[in-house]
């Protein structure tokens, strides 16, 4: 197994993240803006956070489980070109999986920093945002590289490597609207009021080149990787192999698209703020379920492919 990521270490890391996140959920104070906006007491807000915490932890488990299954399968066929490509994709999925708890823990730490040391709010927000971006770039970079190599293992795939025009148009629409929403966000650099919270605490030129542009790159590479996997699945031979691969391919597409959706949702925060709490929670739960479905499909697909190597 790879010296970089071992399944046992992945589960151990998951355990640490869970403990830290639960501790912060119970201990960190709630943003006073949120308490006022949704008319909640501190204990009500904490209980509500716990209802989101538990699904988060289940999602993280699914993510780590999906990665472990795929990594185990890729190790089984490590001497083949497919094995190396799938191992690279698995590493990318691991980084995406780790990014979930890191972001969640980061948000809790930002709340804590704002409460204990208000002058650290800007620094902590910037750090959390950049960790998310760097993790996203590394993750999609690995998934893109692995899926491109996987696609090239089939001779039929060599002609078509550019996504269809429709995909590019959708990507352009998402990117344009995301850029517009980010730069029309009135609290992107400074909080609306004393004690409030800004989204980025960055001047516009830094926001453009270090946040918006990287996210556009992440989405482009993520959707392109999903397209490569689709091409590979269509080109590869083997009736039984293709059926097993379908789960894996669908899972990777689900995971990539749900992460795009989550980031896009975050850019809607000025619109989202006006939504009722129930509606907001419903959207969050839907996205979490999508992520869980994605990693679950990855695990199922990897298990089916692994079985082919064992019988």
């Amino acid at each position: 197994m790879s010296k970089i990521i071992r399944p046992g270490a992945a589960y151990f890391l998951f355990g640490i993240f869970t403990l830290v996140y639960v501790a912060l959920t119970l201990w960190a104070p709630t943003d006073t803006d949120i308490l006022t906006r949704y008319d909640l007491t501190s204990s009500e807000a904490r209980n509500l956070r716990l209802t989101v915490t538990l699904p988060y932890i289940v999602i993280w488990f699914f993510a780590i489980f999906g990665f472990v299954r795929l990594k185990t399968y890729s190790h089984l066929i490590r001497k083949s070109s497919h094995g190396k490509s799938l191992s690279t994709i698995a590493n990318g999925l691991f980084v995406l999986a780790v990014g979930l708890p890191l972001r969640a823990i980061g948000n809790r730490l930002v709340s804590l920093a704002e409460d204990l040391q208000p002058h650290l709010a800007a620094t902590s927000t910037i750090i959390v945002n950049y960790i998310d971006i760097i993790a996203g770039l590394v993750a999609v970079g690995l998934i893109y590289t692995g899926s491109q190599r996987l696609m090239k293992t089939t001779t039929k795939s060599n002609n078509k490597t550019a996504p269809p025009y429709l995909v590019m148009i959708v990507l352009a629409l998402i990117g344009t609207s995301y850029t517009y929403l980010t730069f029309t966000n009135p609290v992107r650099q400074f909080p609306a009021a004393e004690g409030g919270h800004a989204a980025y605490y960055l001047p516009d030129f830094l926001l453009l080149f270090t946040v918006v542009l990287p996210y556009l790159i992440i989405w482009y590479m993520g959707l392109h990787a999903a397209y490569f996997i689709r091409i590979y699945r269509k080109s590869v031979q083997g009736i039984i192999y293709k059926k097993a691969l379908a789960y894996l391919a669908a899972g990777i597409v689900f995971v990539v698209l749900s992460r795009v959706a989550m980031r896009y949702m975050a850019s809607l925060n000025t619109i989202v703020e006006a939504w009722t709490l129930q509606y907001l929670l419903a959207i969050i739960y839907c996205l979490l379920i999508f992520i869980a479905i994605g990693y679950g499909l990855i695990a199922k697909g990897a298990e089916k492919l692994k079985k082919i190597e064992e019988v």
């Binding site: 066929i77 083949s80 497919h82 293992t153 590869v236 031979q237 083997g238 009736i239 039984i240 192999y241 293709k242 492919l305 082919i308 190597e309 019988v311």
Partner: peptide, 12 residues
């Protein structure tokens, strides 16, 4: 076998 198991055929 490749018609059924694709890249896994040889190993199978």
């Amino acid at each position: 076998t490749t018609d059924y198991l694709g890249p896994a055929a040889r190993r199978f």
